[in-house]
Design a protein around this nucleic acid. Structure first.
Lengths: 208, 208
DNA sequence: TGTACATCAGTGAACGCGCGTTCACTGATGTAC
DNA sequence: TGTACATCAGTGAACGCGCGTTCACTGATGTAC
C-alpha cells in the first residue's frame, strides 16, 4: 500500500517485502498459478530485473509468501486458542472459527500455503513456519486429550492430524470466498463446528 | 497410448480424447497449472491449431479433464461401496480406501477436479458429474444414518459433507504421492480410517 | 565537517522463446446417384 | 462399381505478446579518515 504511493528514489528501500505483498495480491486475484515474476515486479513499481536481487526465481518468492502466510496463520490460531482459556472446549471452538476465518479472508496466503504445489520442504524457513503453525493445533489437541481418563487417551499426534484434516477439508471444499464454492444449505462454520462436535463426542469428550 | 504409436493419416480420428489424456498426463507431471494448450497439442502429435476444433480454450479442456475425472471417481466409489454389501460398515470402510486410492493413483484427475481453480459450475457436464460422484457418498451416509434410531438421526446431507471433508482433508494433506507429502508416523489410510471411526462413534455408530 | 571511496540496489536494453490465436489452405472421408 | 461433391478435421505459416534472464550500467547510501 504505502510503497506504491510514497515517492521513492532510485532505491526502493523495501522491495523484498513489496514483492511478497504484490505476489500475495496477485495470487488472491488469479489463483496460486496467477502470478509471474515480471508481474510482481510491475506491481511493485520496479523493473523486471530488480526481483533477482532478492529472489532466485518465482518459486523462491512463492516460498516466502507461503512462509509469511504460515507465520500469520500461527499468530491467528494462537490468539484464538489463547492457551485454552477460558475453558478448553470454548477455546477449541474459537480455534476452529479462526482456522476458517483465515482461510476465507486470507485465501491468497492459504493458497500459497496449501495449493501452490510447493513442497513443505522447499525452504527450511517454510518448513519451520509450517511446523510452528501446526504446533498450535497440536497443543490444543494435547490439552483436550488430557481431559480424558488416562486409559482412554488416544495419541495426541493422531488427534491433531484429524483436526487439521477436518478443518482443511471443510475450508478447501466449502470455505472459499471465491468461485470455487458450492452452494449448500449450511455454511462452512456450521459444518466445521458440527463435524468437530461429533468427532469430539466420538473421543468421549461430549459437552459437559 | 495407442494414438501416439499407431500410424495415422491426415485425420487423427480421436483427437478430442487424445487431448484430454495428454492434458491429464501433463497435470500429473507438473501440477494443475502445468499444461498449456500448445503443449497438449504437441503431446497428442498434432499442430498447435488443431485443438481449436474441439475446445474453445484451455479452460474448456481442463473442464473436460475434470468431468472425466469425476466420472471415474464415481465409478470407483460406487464399486467400492457396492450398495452397502456385504455389510454397511465394511462397505463404508471400502469406500474410504477407494477415495484415498483414487486421490493417490489418479492424482492428476484429482488435481483437475479439486485444485485447478475451476468452478464446479464451469460446465453443466462438470457440475453433473461432480454431483453424481457426491451422490455415492450421500447414499452411503444415508444407509449408515438409517441404522440409528429415528430420534437420533442427524441430517444425511450434513453427515455426507462431513465425510467428504474428512476424506478430502486427509487426501490433500497426507495422501499425495508427490512431493507435497509430509512425513508422518502414520499413513493416510490409517488416518482416514481412525478419523472416520471416531466420527461414526460420535454419531452413535460404534462397532457392533 | 568534508571528502573519497566501496557497496549495493535498481535500471533499461537486449536476447531468445513459447504461447495463444487467426487464417486460407488441403487432404481424407463419406455419401448421393 | 465408379464418379462427383460436400463436409470437416488438421495444417503450417504468420502475428503480436509477455516472460525469464543476462548484462554493463548508474545512482544512492554509508563509512573511513
Amino acid at each position: 500500500m504505502s510503497w506504491k504511493d510514497r515517492e521513492r528514489g532510485y532505491h526502493h528501500g523495501n522491495l523484498r517485502q513489496a514483492l511478497i505483498e504484490a505476489a500475495r495480491a496477485l495470487i488472491g486475484e488469479k489463483g496460486p498459478a496467477g502470478f509471474t515474476f515480471a508481474e510482481a515486479a510491475r506491481a511493485a513499481g520496479v523493473s523486471a530485473a530488480a526481483p533477482y536481487r532478492h529472489f532466485r526465481d518465482r518459486d523462491a518468492l512463492m516460498a516466502d509468501v507461503a512462509a509469511q502466510g504460515f507465520e500469520r496463520f500461527e499468530a491467528a490460531l494462537a490468539k484464538a486458542w489463547n492457551e485454552g482459556k477460558p475453558e478448553p472446549m470454548i477455546a477449541f471452538h474459537h480455534l476452529g472459527r479462526a482456522y476458517l476465518h483465515f482461510a476465507r479472508t486470507e485465501h491468497a496466503y492459504y493458497s500459497a500455503m496449501f495449493e501452490s504445489g510447493l513442497s513443505p520442504d522447499a525452504t527450511p524457513e517454510l518448513r519451520a513456519a509450517s511446523d510452528r503453525a501446526f504446533g498450535v493445533l497440536r497443543g490444543a489437541a494435547e490439552t483436550l486429550c488430557a481431559q480424558l481418563p488416562a486409559g482412554k487417551r488416544p495419541p495426541v499426534l493422531m488427534v491433531s492430524l484429524h483436526i487439521w484434516a477436518i478443518s482443511h477439508g471443510v475450508a478447501s471444499l466449502f470455505g472459499r470466498g471465491d468461485s470455487g464454492r458450492r452452494k449448500l444449505p449450511m455454511d462452512a462454520d456450521e459444518l466445521l463446528e458440527s463435524a468437530v462436535l461429533v468427532y469430539l463426542n466420538g473421543l468421549g469428550l461430549g459437552r459437559a
